[in-house]
Computed example of a mutant assay.
Amino acid sequence: MLPAFAKWAGPSWPGVSAFCSERAGGVSQAPYAGMNLGIHVGDDPSAVAENRARLRTQLPADPCWLDQVHGTEVFDADASSEAQQSTLVNDSVSVWHPPRADAAITQTPGRVLAILTADCLPVVIVDEAATIIGAAHAGWRGLVGGVLESTLTRMAQATGASSSWKAWIGPAIGPQAFEVGADVRDAFLADDAGNDACFVPRLDVPGKWWADLPELAARRLRRAGVAQVELSGRCTVSEPSRYFSYRRDGTTGRIATLAWLNA
């Protein structure tokens, strides 16, 4: 039995399992110290492989990892026969290219969706009957670009029927830590003037605002027809013992949000 690792429980929804990993319990060394699950950040590949092996013990299947690029592409995990797990061969990670997308959906029970983050939003979406689930990676660019709406559209197309949706927004950079300039604020206000409520001006730094990224996502989800939106309330920047944070540390690891439908 591999050692346990720390994790934060996701939403308590019937028919759904979800959790977010934390940085305690892994073998990576500084600056990735702990349970780094990102293979692309410069960490020792063998350490990441060990961390992912520990993660796998808590899952019903290998995760569907994505090559996240801050875009809006949605991967249908049920429509591909590609292997979704990298393997360790001769002390180096085998050549494997995960699908390039920032969201994934599935209707298959036990198929695990995975989103890697270190300040960006991990968002889990499911229908009320728990027949389809989606997971999305949303930084501010992906959010403005419509990654959440794209995910919902693909889920609705897959089910072929109108559904009542609910969403959970996991640990991410909080409203007291996400400083942005006028370009980011203007991008959100161009989409919805009401988003101004999510920006607090920095009186000590002209031209800068504190932005509430989770609430900006929640507003978009509600506007897109999601009836129930739950927020974790956890800030990755302010909890260095729990979470990796790119904004705080620069070179750092990645936590993962895992979600799947139960059988």
Rank of each mutant, 00 (worst) to 15 (best):
A4S: 13
L231M: 12
A83K: 11
V237N: 07
L152I: 10
Q68I: 05
G160L: 03
A172Q: 08
W165L: 00
A101T: 02
H97K: 15
R54G: 00
S86Y: 11
P99E: 01
G233R: 04
E50H: 01
T159N: 00
R234D: 12
T151A: 13
G134F: 11
A129P: 02
A83S: 14
D102P: 10
Q157I: 07
F75L: 06
K166A: 07
S92W: 15
V184T: 13
E82L: 13
V147E: 11
L121K: 06
G194H: 10
W65N: 04
L37S: 01
L258Q: 11
W210Q: 07
D249F: 11
A158V: 03
P14K: 05
R248C: 07
H137K: 11
R100N: 08
G233N: 09
G10T: 02
V112Y: 06
G142R: 05
A263E: 15
P11C: 01
G174W: 01
A53Y: 02
A33M: 10
T252H: 04
V16E: 03
R220I: 01
S12L: 08
D191Q: 15
E239L: 10
E179L: 13
T236C: 11
H97Q: 15
A118D: 15
L231D: 12
A53G: 15
R202N: 12
V95W: 12
S150I: 04
W96Q: 12
S12W: 00
R248V: 10
K166Y: 01
A130F: 06
R52W: 00
A77V: 03
S81P: 00
Y246C: 08
L261P: 06
V69F: 14
Q176S: 11
A47V: 09
A218L: 07
A30H: 13
S21T: 15
I173F: 12
S238P: 00
P3W: 00
E239W: 02
T257I: 11
G225W: 00
N262M: 09
P3E: 01
A47M: 14
P31N: 09
A217L: 09
R219K: 15
T117Y: 04
R248Y: 04
L231T: 09
C235N: 13
V48C: 05
L216S: 04
F199D: 05
G194N: 07
R254T: 04
P60H: 08
A104N: 07
A167K: 03
G142D: 04
L59W: 12
I133W: 10
V74S: 07
F5S: 00
S163R: 01
A156D: 02
W13R: 05
F188A: 06
H40V: 08
N262F: 06
S150F: 06
G225I: 01
A30E: 14
P63K: 00
S80R: 07
T257Q: 11
A4E: 14
Y32P: 03
E50F: 01
R254Q: 14
M1R: 08
A138P: 02
A187P: 05
K7C: 05
D196P: 02
S81I: 06
C20V: 10
